[in-house]
Amino acid sequence: MNRTHIPGILAMAAIVLASNILVQFLFGQWLTWGAFTYPFAFLVTDVMNRVYGAGPARKVVVAGFVTGVICSLIGTQIIGEFGPLVTLRIAIGSGLAFLVAQLTDVAVFDRLRGGKWWHAPLVSTLFGSSLDTAIFFSIAFASGLSFIEPANDVSWANEALPLLGAGPMVPLWVSLGFADWLVKLSLALIALVPFRIIVGKLTAPAT
Rank of each mutant, 00 (worst) to 15 (best):
R111P: 09
P84A: 02
I92V: 09
V108A: 00
S94P: 12
L88I: 09
F98I: 07
L88S: 12
L96A: 10
T87K: 02
V106I: 11
L85G: 07
A107Y: 08
V108Q: 02
G114Q: 08
W117P: 07
D110K: 05
V86K: 02
G115C: 08
A91Y: 06
V100K: 04
F98W: 07
E81C: 10
T87V: 06
I90N: 05
G95L: 15
T87S: 07
L103S: 09
L85C: 13
Q102G: 05
V106S: 03
A101D: 00
G114M: 06
L88G: 14
R111L: 10
R113I: 12
A101T: 03
R89D: 00
F109K: 01
W117C: 06
V108E: 01
E81N: 07
V100N: 03
G83H: 10
I92L: 15
L85V: 05
L112D: 01
F98G: 01
L85Q: 10
G115P: 10
R111A: 14
V108H: 01
S94F: 08
R111H: 15
L103T: 12
R89I: 04
V86P: 04
L99D: 05
A97M: 01
I90T: 06
I92P: 04
L85Y: 13
E81M: 11
K116P: 14
A97H: 00
G114N: 08
P84S: 00
F82C: 14
F98Y: 14
G83A: 12
G93D: 00
E81I: 14
L112I: 06
L103C: 12
L96Y: 06
G83W: 13
W118Y: 15
E81Y: 08
G95V: 14
L88Q: 12
W118H: 08
P84T: 04
Q102C: 13
I92C: 05
E81F: 13
V86Y: 00
R113P: 10
T87C: 06
R111W: 12
G95Y: 09
G83C: 11
R113D: 07
S94V: 05
I90K: 12
R111F: 15
G95H: 13
